[in-house]
């Protein structure tokens, strides 16, 4: 297994101010698969990603990445990970090349190795000509591609993508997802793809639906559609989360905002 999450619970805050965000979450991602983690904003996706990347340690339960327990052996687990966070994390005042060199140094790559990988990956994300450009001058889609290149620099076996298409237009979004799927199928990279956009899900994708901190469904998209007796993953998602009107309205709002390159910040 690339990821094995067992009975994970997590709460923010102390005592009376404590807020449970994840409740007995169980989830697996098989090696080389593209798994979608679906949930509306506030479902707990980003918190789960923070636990997977050891920004926080979980209160209860166990997270294993390629067999390594992240709480016991965080460094061994982290070395397999490439992460694209929901929030952009590039240094705006530095060039694309400088950002990638910085990350290569953090990952312990030699200068020669880093140079070769940066050239390869900039070609992969079609940004070779922008290498010396300052990040602040790039478009949203280009920044995301730089973040993808950065996440792949140390050849990770697992990619965590937390709403990585946020703020991208439809065309950029399509190309971005296609690149990730290609990595998955051709290079055996495992992907956990968090999203609230149902059109990013394909019929035979393994999908887990996270709602109010709980996994409510975990199967192939087609199977979920079938077992819920629905005609689309969107309908199945709305049915499973049990708040069809509210969820539908929020998803519709999110998707409308996404189409206009804006970000839904409600319920964060």
């Amino acid at each position: 297994m690339a990821i094995s999450i067992r009975d994970v619970c997590f709460s923010y805050g102390d005592g009376t101010a404590q807020k449970r965000v994840l409740d007995k979450v169980n989830l697996t991602v098989e090696v080389g698969s593209f798994k979608v983690l679906m949930g509306i904003n506030g479902a707990g996706k980003s918190t789960l990603f923070s636990l997977l990347s050891y920004l926080f340690a979980c209160n209860q339960g166990q997270i294993r990445i390629f067999g390594e327990d992240i709480n016991k052996r965080p460094m061994s687990a982290l070395q397999h990970l490439g992460i694209v966070f929901q929030q952009q994390t590039l240094e705006p005042g530095l060039s694309v090349l400088q950002n990638l060199q910085y990350y290569a140094a953090l990952q312990g790559l030699s200068k020669v190795h880093a140079k070769r990988r940066i050239e390869e990956l900039l070609a992969l994300v079609s940004l070779s000509e922008q290498a010396k450009q300052t990040v602040v001058k790039l478009s949203g889609g280009q920044k995301r591609r730089v973040e993808l290149a950065r996440a792949l620099l140390h050849s990770p076996r697992l990619l965590l993508m937390d709403e990585a298409t946020t703020g991208l237009d439809v065309h950029s979004r399509y190309n971005f997802i296609a690149t990730i799927r290609q990595l998955c199928s051709q290079h055996n990279v495992s992907v956990l793809w968090a999203t609230h956009l149902v059109d990013e899900v394909l019929g035979d994708d393994p999908v887990a639906i996270l709602h109010q901190g709980r996994i409510l469904a975990d199967s192939r998209a087609n199977t979920i559609i079938k077992t819920q007796d629905c005609n689309s993953i969107q309908a199945a998602f709305l049915k499973i989360t049990g708040q069809p009107d509210q969820a539908k309205a929020r998803m519709s709002l999110s998707q409308t905002l996404e189409r206009h390159g804006l970000k839904d910040t409600t319920n964060r």
Binding site: M75, L78, I83, F85, Q88, E91, P92, L106, Q107
Partner: peptide, 14 residues
């Protein structure tokens, strides 16, 4: 706040 701290803290070093 801008998130770049996450990149440092997810580095596989203590």
């Amino acid at each position: 706040e801008v998130g770049s701290m996450r990149i440092l803290l997810t580095t596989p070093l203590p």
